[in-house]
Amino acid sequence: MTDRRDIRLTINGRVHAACAAPRMTLVDFIRDELGLTGTHIGCEHGVCGACSVIFDGKPIRSCLMFAVQADGHAITTVEGLEGADGTLSPLQDSFWEAHAMQCGYCTPGMLIAAHALLAENLDPTEDDIREAISGNLCRCTGYQQIVEAVVHAARRRKGG
C-alpha cells in the first residue's frame, strides 16, 4: 500500500518525473521531493491557504491533494511567477512596493491567489480583491497593504 508511484507533472513550465507514495500530499511533494520550498504549510487541513498553488490554471490548496492526483497536470508555484531571467512579475513588484507582507510566510499563497484573480479580472474592486484572498490567512498585515498591492498591480497593468 505504501508503494511509490511514478508520476509526471509540469511545474512552472518544467516537466518533472518523480515518484511518490499515494499518501504524500501535493505540498509535501513540491517541497520535499522537488525542493521548491516557496510553497508553505500552515494548517494541513485546508483553511489557511499558505500552500496555494495554481493547478491547471486555477488556484487550489496543495495540502488538500495527493501528489499522485497531480500526475499529468500543470502546476505553478510562487517560484514560477517571476520571469526566466529573474524579472519580478508586476504583481510581485507591487507586493514589494506596497510592503504587502511582514514575516513573508503567507506571501506565496497570497501571491498565488492574487495572481489568479488578476488573470481573470482586469479591473478588480476592493471587494473582489478581499474575496479572492479571503481564503488565505495572514497574521501580520491586517490585509491592508496586500489589498493595496493588488490594486497597485491592477492599475499598473491598465497603465494607470
Binding site: T39, H40, I41, L88, H99, M101, G104, P108
Partner: peptide, 19 residues
C-alpha cells in the same frame, strides 16, 4: 523606501526552519 527583506519573500526564497 522598499523593505530589504521583501524580495526573498515575494520570490519564494524565504528560508524558514522547515526549508
Amino acid at each position: 523606501r522598499r523593505t530589504k527583506e521583501d524580495k526573498r519573500f515575494i520570490t519564494g526564497r524565504g528560508r524558514y526552519v522547515a526549508d
